[in-house]
């Protein structure tokens, strides 16, 4: 409910409409629309090259959009870049530090150029992230460079945090610290735009999600809303074999093995399917909501077939069945590969 209130009534921190940006012939952003409400943690999902970094760089005024409008905290990021930068902090996906400056110096430098650091928070963050601030920039590993940028960003008293895959080099312990720190930032009322590959991280942290594909947002909303748009996997054991399910609307990929039945059902038809199922006397019932991974694959499935055909229901469902059969723990990459195999063999869903 809280989420609905957030997206419904709170003010807008970032709004983007019809944003287009091309680099030569490559169209990086193609009429992108997005809205991030103030105070929310907004997940920004999409594979490499989808346009996440370009979007963030436009929001920072580092790139100038060809067409469309971007507003951050009510200001134009290109025209009012400097004034705006005092109110936001940015963590790039690939942090590059000065080889001769120590991590501590880089943190202070970035903080002071932004207009000041909260010293207490700086010390606390360095401690929590277990960062040695006396090392020179060239001596840090990728993860440690990211920590430097994270501390510099999070120790500033800013309203918006723009984080571009900020934890790609962090270990699981530090990932947990990161999640804590982002929750604290949210509790302080800050807005966070978090671009990420790590779906578990987004599921845990984000109130709302935008999925970007080929420079356009293809889906946006709360995780609950997005899940409703996709099918739920159902596995049931009934006393009598459930033979009539195939005719029901919204039910796909029905498999019946004796008294065990497996199928996927669209969110809107879940209720009807379960009613019919209970007519066969239910013994056991497992429902699995679609994971974020399945949501992603639904939008990106076609890229894996490498023939450019728009995703259809059959293929997207085969993806879902693959992931749910392997107990949902499969990584996006694995299931993607598996699904690619299925298609490669014959194109018929098993």
């Amino acid at each position: 409910m809280k989420i609905l209130i957030a997206s419904g009534f709170m003010t807008t921190a970032i709004s983007v409409s019809g944003l287009t940006k091309a680099f030569g012939r490559t169209v990086a952003l193609n009429g992108l629309n997005m809205r991030v409400a103030a105070g929310e943690v907004h997940g920004f999902l999409g594979p490499n090259g989808a346009g996440k970094t370009t979007t963030i760089r436009v929001l920072l005024g580092l790139l100038r959009a060809d067409r469309g409008e971007a507003t951050v905290l009510g200001a134009d990021p290109w025209a009012d870049a400097v004034a705006l930068h005092r109110r936001l902090a940015y963590v790039p996906g690939d942090v590059n530090l000065w080889p001769n400056l120590t991590g501590g110096e880089a943190i202070d430098l970035l903080g002071r150029l932004r207009g000041g650091l909260n010293q207490q928070r700086r010390a606390a963050l360095i401690d929590r992230f277990d960062l040695d601030p006396t090392k020179k920039g060239r001596a840090y590993s990728k993860g440690n460079r990211q920590k430097v940028a994270l501390v510099a960003a999070l120790a500033s008293d800013v309203e918006i945090l723009l984080l571009d895959e900020p934890t790609a080099g962090l270990d699981p312990l530090m990932e947990a610290v990161f999640q804590d720190v982002i929750r604290a930032a949210k509790a302080d009322g800050r807005t966070v735009l978090l671009s990420s590959h790590i779906l578990a991280q987004v599921e845990k942290l984000c109130d709302t999600i935008s999925i970007i594909r080929l420079g356009t947002i293809v889906q946006s909303g709360t995780l609950t809303e997005l899940r409703h748009l996709t099918s739920t996997s159902v596995e049931a054991v009934t006393v009598r074999p459930a033979v009539d399910l195939g005719d029901l609307p919204g039910v796909h990929r029905l498999q019946i093995e004796g008294t065990t039945v497996r199928f996927a059902v669209d969110g809107a038809h879940l209720d009807g399917a379960i009613r019919v199922l209970s007519g066969f006397e239910l013994r056991a019932l497992t429902c699995q909501p679609p994971t974020l991974e399945e949501l992603m694959l639904r939008h990106y499935g076609d890229e894996l077939t490498a023939n450019g055909i728009t995703v259809n229901d059959e293929t997207s469902e085969s993806a879902i069945s693959e992931t749910s059969e392997s107990d949902t723990a499969t990584s996006a990459a694995t299931s993607a590969a598996t699904r690619g195999d299925v298609d490669g063999e014959s194109g018929d869903p098993r």
Binding site: T102, G104, E105, L109, R112, L113, K135, K136
Partner: peptide, 23 residues
């Protein structure tokens, strides 16, 4: 073993000119 450096930046490093001078 590589020497460590200052854990905090000197006052001048935080200014744009001081930063450029440092580099």
């Amino acid at each position: 073993v590589g020497r460590g450096g200052a854990a905090t930046a000197s006052r001048s490093l935080g200014t744009p000119l001081g930063f450029a001078w440092r580099l």
